[in-house]
Amino acid sequence: MICCFSGTGNSRYVAQRIANAIPQEHICNLNEYIKNNKSLEKEDRIVFVTPTYAWRIPRIVENYIKSNAPFDNANAYFVMTCGGEIGNAGKYLELLCRSVGLNYMGVAQVLMPENYIAMFSAPEREEALRIVDASEKTIDGIIDVINKGDAFSSSKVGIIDKLYSSIVNTVYYPLCVKDKSFYAKDSCISCGKCKQACPLNNIELIDGKPRWKGNCTHCMACICGCPTGAIEYGKKSVNQPRYHCPK
């Protein structure tokens, strides 16, 4: 089973690549499972494909995994898409696996285009395509390891990596992961796609306009999925491209 959480398509693309290469595996859309409070099936092997949030997997995914324990010692692979690096994420994934009855098979990172437009600028389509194309060899290597049933090779972790995944991750959520800066412009057509896309049911429509209710994970699904580009995040997103995985 391939469990994928994705806001703008990077992790979804990688998950689909893995699924296409391993026909016996099926994709579980964690966005929908979390949104609808649906439990995971029990499998002998689970591949979790997620974005990187502050050098670890998203807390929304970590909490969901904990809520589905125990896993009866299933083999667990983690694939993290990122705009830079995943820091010391492996340490925390191994601890997570121990706590929920998963057999930790390691973590692999896939460099993908930047999509966190609440803080950074996403690339234009041609540059995004170049980055995704460059990731294909890495994805092929990940597929090969999973097919063989081997564990991912561990990477060297430095002091900075440890700081990023510990102290920085700890302060990132209370300082940065807020929805107060989201708003909808008059170009909003009241389609409700933002509400539908939110994995935490954090958006409601009031007088036809989206309102955020304070329980956001910063997946960027709402702002990047708006068909008219009506959603902004303060001044940061103004005149910036909305990101969708170009493949």
Rank of each mutant, 00 (worst) to 15 (best):
M1L: 15
C4D: 08
F5H: 06
S6N: 06
S6P: 07
G7E: 04
N10A: 03
N10C: 09
A15M: 08
R17D: 01
I18T: 12
Q24A: 11
N29G: 08
L30S: 09
E32P: 01
S39I: 14
L40Q: 06
L40E: 05
K42C: 04
K42Q: 15
F48H: 12
V49L: 06
T50V: 14
T50R: 02
W55M: 04
R56V: 12
P58H: 04
R59T: 09
I65F: 04
P70E: 07
D72E: 15
T81P: 00
T81K: 00
G83R: 00
E85I: 00
G87C: 02
C97A: 15
R98N: 15
G101F: 08
L102K: 04
G106I: 10
V107T: 15
A108G: 03
N115D: 10
F120M: 14
R125P: 00
L129E: 13
D144P: 00
D144A: 14
V145L: 04
I146A: 11
N147L: 14
D150V: 04
D161P: 11
K162I: 12
K162Q: 14
S165A: 14
V168A: 14
Y172N: 06
Y173V: 07
P174L: 05
C176K: 11
F182E: 08
G192R: 08
C194P: 07
D207P: 08
K209N: 01
T217K: 04
C222T: 04
E232G: 07
S237K: 09
S237N: 13
S237W: 13
N239W: 03
Q240A: 15
P241M: 12
C245M: 02
P246R: 03
